[in-house]
Design a protein around this nucleic acid. Structure first.
Lengths: 338, 338
DNA sequence: CGCCTATATGGAACCGGTTCCATTGGTCCA
DNA sequence: TGGACCAATGGAACCGGTTCCATATAGGCG
């Protein structure tokens, strides 16, 4: 069955293979009558061209790779959806490579630096080393970063420093001065996630601007799980002089803080204001004040950028910065007079 | 740069191209000395074989397609993770085709029925028509369904009828007899999702067994959003004789029910027991009693099954049924004496 | 020692497209 | 009417692997 080839079509239509190929590729240099003959033969033989053969002779794979860590996390899923909407409308397929360990990451980076494996590479939240970037460039593979930065590659980022700043400033504007920050791990951060650094910077910047000294005890680190966040939040809330407001690195961690407060009998928002980051779906349901990121949009922009760079030869690296937005709900209120 | 071919290697090593190919494919009919010469040449030229060329001459794509609807929903993401762990260890890549409309679905089904586009097809939650199945078979494309059933295709399902039964039975065992069921849309169900039917059947079965007559007013349908679920739950809870317990089709809808109860001043669990379905991550945090499905495992099994079917010629369709589990938390309690 | 067989190897043909060059046929202009 | 030029087309060569067949070499056995 199957395997009707372009040669069969050519024979049937009484033309050469070149002509059939030209018809398939909408090359205008084919007379209308010839074109119709070929189309009739294609119809009759139920011919469909083989993408693989096409790829081999074109030297293109019509495929892009998306390398992303932990694609189960809600924020990644949202970004992937953005990518998908763009790629689905293009003639490119995308293959998803999920990274959960540094060794998987390194393996994928190595494999992709093969000139004919994929036509483009979209890397999410991971920062390739200079050597790796070098290998992509040598192989001539257009590469775009989403949620990560490298000076030689185009990237889409969210202004996380501003986001961290906004969250902290919001609490300061409400009169708070004892402001805790529950962040992701900053030093044991094998993937070097950039936002971890940036949000922290924003936090520090807002404090400095308001003339509030940084209090190391108010900065705690936990992984992105509710359970651990709850434990760490409890430590912070049982300090002799506990914070009156807490900014959490993610909404998930903010839920840990809420639970910690509940278990310690601390009322939110009257005794403690809490602000998260991400605005995941459930946050609205739980009335969490938070910082919304344009996650879906970051995927869309990343995919578009990559498709553009595949088309042009030597693109200048570009940077697109997406803004954040404060979503005011019910977990932050002005500091009660003492 | 790049494009060192097998012929370059052959020349360098002073052997024929066939021999190089044999070395690459670990064909044992190569003398150790020859083999070493070839490997040395490969090393020296930094040769890496082109997957595309390999695919063309093998007539295989080394790629499988995964067609899934709405991959943002937590339950699909969990299943995809299961798939990913299996495919990542195999030599197959997988391309994700996200379906959000019936036309996208039909387009993908048509495109995949090309014998050389992909080597295998994994379809999630969508039921192909007999004609479509026919076209896959003619093209010789192994196909596996996850969370859907077709008599001629292997499939992995979760025992949703039993799941619906378990949820309902649990409420009955607690003494409830006025049991509402908030389901997904059963008739305006463009994708014909099978679980929608099965859970409903389980609900009816449990009622029948316990001798409780089915009360149509207690069966309401809403889409899978919290907001709509809340609205519909309110209708049910403001009936003259409202249910004392509600089983929701998904955890997300269960949260809508909880919010509806809260807004109506109905206490959960003392005045109303609520049970969900899925056991998504946030459910534990909110203490929701629910039915847990083996989502991750369903992905793993589906991927394994597909890889097996790619290897053998004419597999008999197989069926794997995964069980569900009642997760007891704090939103269901025995019916208070009147 | 010579013949036969098994093993190792070279390389042409092939997979199914695209592309480029040569050729044909026709039009236009002097 | 003849020459120049252009548009349309045929088909060989190519992309980079795999496979199969023919051939060379070595080893075994009488």
């Amino acid at each position: 069955m199957a395997s009707v080839t372009i040669r069969d079509v050519a024979k049937k239509a009484g033309v050469g293979v070149g002509t059939v190929s030209r018809v398939l590729n909408r090359n205008p240099a084919v007379r209308e009558a010839t074109r119709r003959k070929v189309l009739a033969a294609i119809e009759e033989l139920e011919f469909t061209p083989s993408p693989i053969a096409r790829r081999l002779s074109l030297g293109k794979t019509m495929t892009v790779a998306v390398i992303a860590p932990f694609f189960v996390r809600p924020s990644y899923v949202e970004r992937l959806r953005g990518l998908d909407t763009v790629f689905a409308e293009s003639e490119y397929d995308f293959i998803l490579y999920n990274v959960e360990t540094t060794s998987r990451r390194d393996r994928y980076f190595r494999e992709m630096a093969r000139s004919d494996r994929v036509d483009g590479l979209l890397i999410m939240s991971l920062v390739p080393t200079d050597n790796t970037v070098e290998s992509f460039m040598n192989a001539g593979i257009p590469t775009v970063l989403v949620d990560a930065v490298h000076p030689r590659l185009s990237h889409i980022i969210i202004d996380d420093q501003k986001g961290g700043y906004k969250a902290t400033k919001h609490l300061i504007d409400l009169g708070h001065r004892k402001i805790g920050y529950l962040s992701d791990h900053m030093y044991e951060n094998p993937f070097n996630f950039q936002p971890v650094i940036d949000r922290y910077k924003g936090y520090r910047q807002a404090l400095t601007e308001a003339g509030i000294p940084f209090h190391p005890e108010y900065h705690r680190q936990s992984e992105l799980s509710r359970r651990i966040a709850k434990k760490v939040a409890k430590e912070m809330l049982t300090l002799p002089d506990p914070p009156t407001a807490i900014f959490a690195y993610s909404d998930t961690q903010a839920f840990g803080v809420l639970r910690a407060a509940e278990e310690l009998g601390i009322g939110v928002p009257e005794d403690l204001s809490v602000i998260g980051y991400d605005d995941i779906e459930i946050s609205e349901y739980l009335h969490l004040t938070t910082i919304r990121q344009q996650l879906f949009q970051s995927g869309v922009e990343g995919a578009k950028l990559l498709l553009e760079e595949i088309d042009i030869q030597h693109p200048e690296p570009r940077e697109i910065v997406l803004p954040t937005e404060l979503i005011l709900r019910k977990t932050t209120v002005p500091l009660a007079a003492p």
